[in-house]
C-alpha cells in the first residue's frame, strides 16, 4: 500500500512525457514566430539601406517618378518609386472593383437564389479557380489577354488593363468564398422575417441580407485586395515591366512585385540598385500589414455592433 503512496509522490513517466511534449510543441510554434520576426527584421534592415546608406530621402522615394537606380543625381541614386506604387494600387483597385459585383452575385447564387444547385456547381468552380497556379494565370494572360488587348487598343497589349483582367480572375474565388461565409452567417430568421412581411427576394437580399453581412463582405474585399497587391508572377508576365508612370491603362507599366521579380536577380547585393529593390519589398511588407490591420479593424467593429 505504501507503494501506491510513493508512486503518487514520484514524477511518473507520463508527467515527464507531458513536459517534454509541451516543450517540443512550443518549440515548433516558437520557430514559426521566429520566422515571422526574422522576415520583418531582414527585410526592414535591407529596405532601410536606401535611406541610411544611400541617402535617398523618403519623400523623394515615395513621390519621385524617375526610376533609374544606376544613375546618381546630386549624391543619391535616382529611385522614384511612384510608378510602381501607382501601378500596384491601380491594378489592385481596378481588379478588385471588377471582381466585387461578380463575387457578390456568385455568392448570392450560392446562398439565397439557388442554394442547392448553385453550391453544387459553383463550389467546385471556385475551388478549381483557387487551385490554378499563378504562373498558369500569367501564361493564359500572356497568350490570350495580351493579344486581345493589342487587337482592341493597339500598342503592345501589355499594361495595367491586362494585369487587371488576370488579377480579376485570381481574386474572384477568394472574395466569393469569403462572401459566401459572410452571407451564410446571416441568420435564416432574418430572411424569413423579411419575406413574411411581403418583401420580394431581391428586397430581402438587398435590404436585409447584404446589409447585415456588410462587415464580412468588406473583410472579403480587403482579403482580395491583399492577394491582388501581393501577386507577383502573373502580373509581371502581362504588365509590360516598364518603370513608367501608368498614364495609360494599355501602355506597359510595372508594379512593386513585377520590378522585384525581374530586378533582384540582376543586381548585386549591397549596391544602391539592389537596396532600392529591398525598399520596394519593404513597402510590400508594410502594405501586407496594413491589409491585415484593416481586416482586424473591420472584424472588431463588426463584433462591437452585435
Amino acid at each position: 500500500m505504501d507503494k501506491i503512496r510513493a508512486s503518487i509522490l514520484t514524477p511518473s513517466r507520463s508527467s515527464k512525457l507531458e513536459r517534454r511534449g509541451k516543450w517540443l510543441s512550443l518549440l515548433c510554434l516558437g520557430s514559426i514566430c521566429i520566422v515571422v520576426i526574422a522576415i520583418f527584421g531582414f527585410i526592414t534592415y535591407r529596405g532601410l539601406a536606401t535611406f541610411t546608406t544611400d541617402h535617398v530621402s523618403l519623400s523623394k522615394f515615395l513621390t519621385g517618378t524617375d526610376w533609374n537606380p544606376s544613375v546618381s543625381k546630386s549624391g543619391a541614386p535616382l529611385v522614384g518609386a511612384l510608378p510602381m506604387i501607382a501601378g500596384s494600387f491601380l491594378i489592385t483597385i481596378l481588379a478588385t472593383a471588377l471582381a466585387i459585383p461578380f463575387a457578390i452575385g456568385t455568392a448570392l447564387m450560392m446562398t439565397d437564389v439557388t442554394p442547392k444547385t448553385g453550391t453544387r456547381i459553383l463550389q467546385p468552380v471556385l475551388e478549381l479557380l483557387v487551385g490554378i497556379p499563378s504562373v498558369v494565370y500569367g501564361f493564359v494572360g500572356l497568350t490570350v489577354v495580351v493579344p486581345a488587348m493589342r487587337n482592341i487598343f493597339g500598342g503592345s497589349g501589355f499594361g495595367i488593363l491586362s494585369g487587371t483582367f488576370v488579377l480579376f480572375v485570381m481574386v474572384l474565388p477568394t472574395i466569393t468564398s469569403m462572401t459566401v461565409d459572410a452571407l451564410t452567417s446571416v441568420p435564416k430568421s432574418f430572411r424569413y422575417a423579411s419575406l413574411a412581411l411581403g418583401a420580394t427576394r431581391w428586397q430581402t437580399i438587398y435590404k436585409v441580407v447584404l446589409r447585415s453581412a456588410t462587415p464580412g463582405i468588406l473583410t472579403a474585399i480587403v482579403f482580395g485586395m491583399a492577394r491582388a497587391f501581393g501577386e507577383a508572377l502573373a502580373v509581371q508576365m502581362v504588365v509590360g515591366n516598364a518603370t513608367l508612370m501608368p498614364y495609360s491603362l494599355v501602355a506597359p507599366a510595372s508594379t512593386l512585385t513585377s520590378v522585384l521579380t525581374t530586378g533582384i536577380g540582376n543586381t548585386v547585393m549591397g549596391t544602391a540598385q539592389n537596396d532600392a529593390l529591398w525598399s520596394l519589398a519593404l513597402i510590400l511588407l508594410i502594405m501586407s500589414l496594413t491589409f491585415n490591420l484593416a481586416i482586424h479593424l473591420i472584424a472588431n467593429r463588426g463584433s462591437l455592433k452585435r
Binding site: I8, P11, S12, S14, S15
Partner: peptide
C-alpha cells in the same frame, strides 16, 4: 492515503 491530492508535489497521472 495521508496525502493531500490538492498539492503541488502530487503526480496527477499516477
Amino acid at each position: 492515503r495521508d496525502l493531500d491530492l490538492n498539492s503541488r508535489e502530487i503526480d496527477v497521472y499516477a
